[in-house]
Simulated scan of single mutants.
Amino acid sequence: MKLNKDQTFPAQPHLDVWQKLKQFTDARIALGRTGCSVPTKALLEFQLSHAQAKDAVYQSLNIDHISDQLKQLGFETTHVESCADNKEIFLKRPDLGRQLSETSRQKLKNIQLTSNFDVCIVIGDGLSARAIEENAIPFVHQLHTYMKQENWTLAPISIATGSRVALGDEVAQIFNASMLIMLIGERPGLSSPDSMGIYYTWQAHVGSIDSERNCISNVRTAGLSIEIAAQRLFALMKKSKQIQRSGVALKDEHQIPVVEQHQKRQLFFRDSSND
């Protein structure tokens, strides 16, 4: 039997030629290698990211904290639930996450309304409660400053648990609101467990379809800033009110000003390779 000589590998990791590109992205590029495997540091970072993504999905929304913060800003709030009353059902039955529970439906109908509303905001946990807890309050505060310029009336803000995007349709229908804004935690990626999505619908109602919605995604510290997201949504809302439509009939024509970057862009995961 012929024996092959043992092959030895260098102890130091082999750096990738794309190493300089890591400063521009959270994507897992230029990981390097040690022998035929990824370096231990890269493996541990991947496992951490995977754990953070799972935690984002299973984390429960802190309803009291969200409600207290909104009340401090002067907003009226209410808590509603979908028919998916636990995480297991929520993940396995997306259809139930799109329907208000009967208790929540009656709760909304019992709220004494003096008139119809221009805007209805629903804050839903979705697939990342963390995204909502970190981004929803400052976004609502920023957007409301723009709304006051138009004297738009705002329905009580609904904080929804077990929620999918379409859950907000019935809330807006009950409140007779012309414009629905659904803030929801997006499905977490391995570099974005804190990403919030915004869905806008004109004259939302039970049975509204996706082509009737406009979406602004990746709202987070390392993604689309809250200020720009609020500006973009406000521009869509003004145009929507003019044409009485949303979705594929409503184009995003908001111009983002060019801002000179005086500071290094802060990524979600700090790159310590050059430390």
Rank of each mutant, 00 (worst) to 15 (best):
A129F: 14
A131F: 06
I132W: 05
I132P: 03
E133Q: 13
E134A: 11
E134I: 10
N135S: 07
A136Y: 07
I137T: 01
I137Y: 00
I137G: 04
I137V: 11
V140M: 02
H141Q: 13
Q142N: 11
Q142V: 07
H144Q: 11
T145P: 04
Y146E: 12
Y146G: 02
Y146K: 12
M147C: 08
M147K: 01
M147G: 01
K148T: 15
K148Y: 08
K148C: 14
Q149Y: 13
E150C: 12
E150A: 15
E150R: 12
N151P: 00
N151W: 05
W152E: 00
W152H: 00
T153W: 00
T153Q: 04
T153S: 10
L154N: 03
L154S: 01
L154E: 00
A155R: 01
A155Y: 05
P156F: 13
P156W: 11
I157C: 04
I157W: 03
S158G: 10
I159E: 07
I159G: 06
T161Y: 11
T161H: 14
S163D: 14
S163Y: 09
R164G: 09
R164W: 12
R164T: 15
R164S: 12
V165Q: 03
A166P: 06
A166V: 08
A166E: 11
L167M: 11
L167N: 05
E170Y: 08
A172T: 04
Q173K: 00
F175P: 02
N176I: 04
A177G: 06
S178I: 04
S178V: 04
M179P: 01
L180D: 07
L180Y: 13
I181N: 02
M182P: 05
M182S: 10
M182H: 04
L183Q: 08
L183E: 05
L183P: 04
I184V: 10
I184W: 05
I184L: 08
G185D: 08
G185N: 08
R187E: 09
P188L: 07
G189A: 10
G189N: 07
L190P: 02
P193N: 14
G197K: 01
I198K: 02
Y200K: 02
Y200V: 06
Y200S: 04
T201V: 15
T201L: 07
T201D: 06
W202M: 12
Q203Y: 03
A204Q: 00
V206S: 13
G207Y: 06
G207Q: 08
S208R: 09
S208G: 09
S208Q: 08
I209Y: 13
D210P: 10
S211L: 13
E212Q: 14
R213W: 11
R213A: 08
I216F: 12
I216V: 14
I216W: 09
S217T: 14
S217H: 09
N218L: 06
V219C: 06
R220N: 14
R220I: 09
T221S: 15
T221P: 05
A222I: 01
L224P: 09
L224A: 10
S225D: 12
I226T: 00
I226D: 00
I226A: 02
I228W: 03
I228C: 03
I228D: 04
I228E: 05
A230R: 01
Q231G: 10
Q231C: 14
Q231W: 13
R232T: 15
R232P: 01
L233K: 05
F234A: 02
A235I: 05
K239I: 08
